[in-house]
Computed example of a mutant assay.
Amino acid sequence: MKATTRSRKAARVKMRDIAASPSKLARPKILVCSSGKGGSGKTCLTRNLAVFAAHAGLRVATIDLDPQRGLTNWYAVRPDEAVNIPNVAIPLSRLQEAMHQAEALGKLDLLVIDTPPGVDASPVEMRHLLLLADFVLVPTGQGAGDLRSVVEWMAFIRREQRPSAFVLNLTMRSAGSFDRAKQRLIEAGDLCPFDIRLYESIRVSDEIGLGVAEMKGANGLSDVRGVFTFAMHALGMKVSVDV
């Protein structure tokens, strides 16, 4: 993340002003899924947590800040009869516009935000988003390359003093790298006690526009439920999960 000292100070001042405004009292909780590396499963995590939230009775919407539009493409094939979850698709460079569009959706309990795999292109906006976030989930695979990237990204998040945790995603628990990854992540920050395993149902859910919570007998349901419960606790939201 390369930005001038002046731009960093300006970002902080601007977000302090927003935080102090009365409208913040009524705004939804903001959960950001962010990673310094592509292929970590950010979009998978975003959509599945949003689906869980909707089925738990929360008024939830998503924001797709990733120019690859994986989340928005998922919405494009979502069945008409599936529970409605509004989505705003705008590049990270236009973050303020994205937040205004989300506000126009009406009263929400939760916003789940998917971010680009690389955040260097819009460092000021990324700082704005982190300062708005009530909690940041940093998904990662268990490979050495994944870990190097997210550990560096988590260091930046912690310097910004944002509440956050890693989530091991698309895992293979039988591999020795799984335990090594857990140890490395615990050394670098907080780690969600639940991981999401590499199941075929996770891939299929993307193709058919559903979350695993909406697929009968889907593998991975208990994994996602665990991460969702962890995230809701971190956000201070009391939610009954019956899915």
Rank of each mutant, 00 (worst) to 15 (best):
L95I: 03
L95G: 06
L95M: 05
Q96W: 08
Q96I: 14
E97F: 11
E97S: 14
E97Q: 15
E97G: 12
A98F: 12
A98W: 11
H100A: 13
H100W: 01
H100S: 09
Q101H: 07
Q101S: 06
A102E: 01
E103C: 00
E103G: 03
E103K: 13
E103T: 12
A104C: 05
A104E: 13
A104N: 12
L105I: 11
L105V: 10
G106K: 07
G106N: 04
K107M: 09
K107S: 13
L108D: 07
L108T: 08
D109T: 09
L110C: 14
L110A: 13
L110D: 12
L110N: 12
L111A: 10
I113A: 10
I113V: 15
I113R: 11
I113N: 08
I113C: 11
D114G: 01
D114Q: 05
T115R: 05
P116I: 01
P116C: 02
P116D: 01
P117A: 09
V119Y: 02
V119H: 05
D120K: 10
A121T: 14
A121Q: 14
S122R: 06
S122D: 13
S122H: 11
P123T: 04
P123F: 06
P123M: 09
P123I: 04
V124H: 03
V124N: 03
E125H: 09
M126I: 03
M126N: 06
R127Y: 00
R127C: 02
R127F: 00
H128P: 03
H128Q: 09
H128N: 12
H128R: 11
H128D: 14
H128T: 03
L129T: 10
L130T: 06
L130M: 15
L130N: 04
L131C: 02
A133W: 02
D134W: 08
D134Y: 09
D134K: 11
F135I: 10
V136N: 07
V136Q: 07
L137T: 10
L137Y: 09
L137M: 15
V138Y: 04
V138Q: 05
V138E: 02
P139C: 08
P139A: 09
T140K: 10
Q142T: 09
Q142V: 03
G143M: 10
A144D: 12
G145F: 09
D146I: 09
L147E: 08
R148N: 15
V150I: 08
V150S: 03
V150D: 04
V151P: 02
E152V: 07
E152F: 10
E152S: 14
W153Y: 15
W153R: 06
M154L: 06
M154F: 01
M154H: 01
A155Y: 02
A155D: 10
A155T: 07
A155S: 11
F156T: 03
F156H: 00
I157W: 01
I157S: 03
R158K: 15
R159Y: 13
E160S: 08
E160P: 04
Q161A: 15
Q161R: 15
Q161D: 15
P163V: 07
P163Q: 13
P163M: 10
P163N: 11
S164W: 01
A165N: 04
A165K: 06
F166W: 04
F166R: 03
L168M: 15
L168Q: 03
